[in-house]
């Protein structure tokens, strides 16, 4: 152990005011106040990209040679190959639908589709995606062309805080594709691995059932 307790203002803090040389992943900006213009024009660092209909400030860089196909478009990947897909989707593509919940595949908030199959993007290495097509909730439907489940979730007001709703929708959408006429018990079982803390369960079930009976 080389460093004992440090307080603010000591050597360790000062040293880090000049971050290590850019490894190719960072934004290349200096450590102190950076004008926005400089930030945006910092080489390959940042660009306003549109993904899934959402504009966002994202980081791009020289990349690893890896690409992923997300919502129908190929994207170069800058992250290390063992990075969970979730962080690539959120921080490189600027998608907000898939959300970090546990990082342990226990709650479902990060669910996306790989070739139509619901997977937990928090434990899916980006280099394991290969040629499979990634679909996020942004690719599932849009306000002008909603997936039937999205419309039903709005009709049933099936959310409170809504953080889990991405996973509920993506899991239910993949499930209904494989089983269009499930029983109530089968729906509950299909969603058993998706956690909701607000208790929107009844509304979620009503929304899924509304799509089945439609």
């Amino acid at each position: 152990m080389s460093a004992m307790k440090q307080g603010p203002g000591d050597d360790l803090q000062e040293a880090a005011r000049a971050p290590a040389a850019d490894s190719g992943d960072g934004d290349g900006a200096g450590p102190r106040r950076v004008p926005r213009a400089a930030f945006i024009s910092a080489g390959v660092a940042a660009a306003a990209a549109v993904a899934g209909g959402t504009a966002y400030l994202v980081e791009r860089s020289r990349g690893t040679g890896l690409t992923v196909n997300v919502n129908g478009r190929d994207h170069p990947v800058a992250a290390a190959p063992d990075t969970p897909l979730l962080y690539v989707l959120r921080n490189e593509l600027g998608l907000r639908g898939p959300r970090f919940g546990c990082g342990l595949a226990e709650c479902g908030a990060c669910t996306v589709h790989l070739d139509g199959v619901a997977v937990r993007s928090c434990v899916t290495r980006v280099d394991s995606v290969g040629n499979r097509q990634v679909t996020t909730i942004e690719g599932l439907g849009t306000p002008s062309n909603p997936h039937p489940l999205q419309k039903a979730f709005i009709d049933q007001q099936a959310a409170q805080c809504g953080y889990c709703i991405n996973g509920m929708l993506m899991t239910a959408a993949a499930f209904l594709k494989s089983k269009p006429r499930p029983t109530d018990a089968e729906i509950k079982s299909a969603l058993a691995g998706n956690l909701c803390r607000c208790g929107s369960h009844y509304r979620i079930l009503r929304a899924v059932k509304a799509v089945i009976s439609a």
């Binding site: 907000r96 909603p146 999205q150 709005i154 959310a159």
Partner: peptide
Amino acid sequence: IPAKVFGT
């Protein structure tokens, strides 16, 4: 709720 359902 709409924005929560469309991931925006």
